[in-house]
Design a protein around this nucleic acid. Structure first.
Lengths: 200, 200, 200, 200
DNA sequence: GCTTAAGCGAGACGGTACGTCCGGTCTTAGA
DNA sequence: TCTAAGACCGGACGTACCGTCTCGCTTAAGC
């Protein structure tokens, strides 16, 4: 029930891209707090109204900008399955450590996470588009391992996935600890040790 | 490094308390984004300068307000130790679930977490004063269990604590899942299953 | 030299008028010292920025407000010339006495005079737009009288005009004496007595 | 009916002088608008309350500071009387031109005049202490000249004095013209020409 | 000479207004 | 009709001073 739905067919692709680039570069330069719609419009060479016409807030611009860049990257293909669960998880997590250390990736992602933590509406979109697909890939890899007998039947793959991923996310988001390969390796080892099927 | 340090001995305790109460009630009513220094000052019956004299930002006001209220509450005493680790962890986590559902607690805490996620300076204080003491209590309870032989020697209590706590924190902060007793119970059971000493 | 010149073509005439009316009514109610840009904006139903966009200070708002009202009124037409110089000057000065006793006229005019006395930049505009046109009208009427032989050739009309007008202005501005018809009549009589061509 | 009259006997002469010096130097450096009580107190090394205890406003401080310096200077002795009225007036006015060109004199005097123009209460004190004594000296010199037969009996010395002095004051205060010796000489010549007793 | 009450330097306090920044809406001209 | 541009109303920012107040300290007067 918006005032009037703009005609998407007539939308300027050039402006859309310019807005994304401006938003991503600005969030890296000045941070999310000082990222402004006016600033984005000015750098993109675009009128403010062109932003407000298509997005309700700077957070939504950033979310689209970020996913437009990154949506191919994703976990669409799922996690690798070499048959060795521990090795696969460690490899993926080490890659993730690298990714989260890249400032160009970190700045907008952190901004979105922080904005999502504060805004329930936004967090729904953030989770759906960024967090959930990743988590699902882990859950499915764990389920596959379970079917292959690598993991005990009583283990809930969702809980297991969260036990591996959340300590990483938390350390990164709240800066409660360092993000090292040894940390992620330990996470995998400690978790999998408990999930192995028991003789008993 | 500051322009000039105000004289803390002359500080008005009345104003300090009024500011805390105003900040906590306002953040609950209007949320963090619309929480303003002006609004706090107005509700507290205080000049804006009295806030700016003692705190650099609304986030710092809120952090002090929250910890002034809560700093006795804390984990200073450590987690209970009944000898039954699983029962103790479940009880504490269930209490935490209740706490995080209380709007009066949740609003300022979430605001601080979100602000900390975006601001490195702030997150250092947030972690030190709120997150780390809680985490340490878990780590110590786990270490005690390890010494009592309930947990295998190879387990790193810090990693173990994060595997129990972070999934909870992450679900709450990012709203990636429900916070139920059954969730926290599952976390404890799944984690501890893997940590038990093995016969082998 | 300004940061960026606003586009005068897009200016809101409605806002401009509302600002003038607010400024003039407020200066009458609370005086110049307590006249504030915020107060003007509030009464005019206008954002503060709309004032700062077009005027550098409250004094400039008032100057424009006053002259917008009064610029037709003025001495554009010159002083009356009935052939009887003394009568003409007395009539005009008596009218001026009445005018300067009207609070609606006096409040903004006095405010501008006081602000101009303190601020060289402002006084240049104040003199050019308000004082000088009036003075010029007197100078020209005196010159006409000189050509008509009513005034001696050696008299400098500018000096003569100041000798008639300045005592009046000074009494009013500094409150050094009463503004009565008999005072202005005396001024005219005393001055003209000396300017008459002598038989000698 | 003040709250409580402070005990003038215990007043600190050192502070009083320091305040005067600070006020006069500051008004010269930053102008009257940006002259602040806090600034005066800081430069004088004095508490703000020490100023508010003895003066109701910065204008009153300045008025006292200025007259404390200048009250000997004054016209207490009256104008010189050499027997040649024109010469005496020209000499005094030329000296006054010099004085009003001295920045150390001009800054506080202009500030007081401007503040007095805006504030009726203050202008009463300003006129009484600074303007009126000067004017009275002129009136008396003119009366003496009248008694000596230099000026016609019908001339009102007060009007005559204002016709000589006010054009000067007005030019200076409102910056409506230059302050030159030739201007003041012309004023004297033009005025006195009219006041001479006539044969008729 | 000792007490005590005032003035004093200092500066925190509740306020008001400043001039700036930006949010989100609206208007205009151009493509 | 969408766009670039930007004026508009509104409201919060962080700062500067206002005039009041309270704190110890110094200091002169009166006991």
């Amino acid at each position: 029930m918006d005032r009037k739905a703009p005609d998407a067919a007539r939308r300027s692709e050039r402006s859309r891209r310019a807005i994304f680039e401006a938003a991503l570069s600005l969030v890296g330069e000045v941070g999310y707090q000082r990222l402004t719609v006016e600033g984005i419009a000015a750098r993109a060479g675009v009128g403010k109204q062109t932003i407000y016409r298509w997005w309700p807030s700077k957070a939504d611009v950033l979310l689209d900008a970020f996913t437009a860049d990154a949506d191919v990257e994703g976990y669409a293909a799922g996690l690798p399955d070499s048959g060795d669960l521990a090795a696969d998880l460690k490899a993926v997590l080490r890659a993730t450590v690298d990714e989260f250390r890249d400032p160009a990736f970190q700045a907008p992602y952190r901004a979105l996470a922080a904005a999502g933590a504060a805004d329930e509406q936004l967090s729904a979109r953030f989770v759906e588009r960024l967090l959930e697909p990743g988590m699902r890939a882990y859950v499915e890899r764990l389920r596959a391992a379970q079917e292959a007998g690598e993991i005990a039947a009583w283990v809930d793959p969702r809980i297991a996935a969260e036990m591996v991923l959340s300590p990483f996310s938390q350390r990164w988001l709240m800066r409660t600890g360092e993000l090292t390969y040894s940390f992620t390796d330990s996470l995998v080892d400690t978790a999998l040790a408990g999930f192995r099927p028991r003789p008993s």
